[in-house]
Amino acid sequence: MSSSGVPMLTLPLRVLPPVGLGRGRARLLVERNVIAYRRGWIFLVSGFFEPLFYLLSIGLGLNHLVGHLAIGGSSIPYTDYVAPGLLASSAMNGAIFDATFGIFFKLKIAKTYDAVLATPLGVRDVAIGELAWSLIRGTVYSIAFLTVMAALGLIASWWAVLCLPAAMLVSFAFGGLGMFGTCYMRSWQDFDLVSLAIVPLFLFSGVFYPLSLYPGWLRIVIMVTPLYQGVALLRGLDTGVLGPALLVHACYLALLGATGLVGASRRLGHLLLP
């Protein structure tokens, strides 16, 4: 047997006074994810490159073949057209992965949240903390992508400084939505639904070409999907083609993220504190 005594005596720690317990500790979930990713940083870093490769491939490779596109009365090169769309999908990708696979693993497989809830933290801390993490990851991707866009001279307007908060809204929306959906998933098989949603969104939400190519009814269907809202918002800001519609897009995304957060919070309470 080890000779070490019980450390209770050697270092008596007083638990902090119970002020604000169960509130405002969401940042600890973020701290957890930072520590967890210290060994898996390559997952974080590599995730950024996929949209970048698409930008260089489809954006640059097809630039000459597509030529110029008309937007808001002016005509812009195809690369300029596709870049903000890919920024939106980068923000989506950055947020969605941890909000779905990551949360499911912690919720159902590793039972990480069961352990967390045995501490002073509450479900709301868990929901806010995890969404904050998704948002941070999405934001980091967005900053990196915007930097590349600037370096390639793809930023056409000063309004583009608003692209970062707008991209964060996209991350917020998809993070909240992903987290909410994940709370209802039963097994890994259900995650086919995630890519079944993400891949068509990526391909058909106007990232690569205007919706005017679609028949009328399909256009309306796509316009209510969240990625389209993000693409439209970012493209408007990046190209400087503004209008009140941009505010509508922003409100839509904010509302979606908030709904996801509240819903996920409730559902997590049901699941974890029966």
Partner: peptide
């Protein structure tokens, strides 16, 4: 097939 439809048909139209 989705790639074929989105990029091939959609973008192809522009090209």
């Amino acid at each position: 097939v989705l790639y074929l439809a989105a990029i091939g048909v959609g973008l192809g139209h522009l090209i």
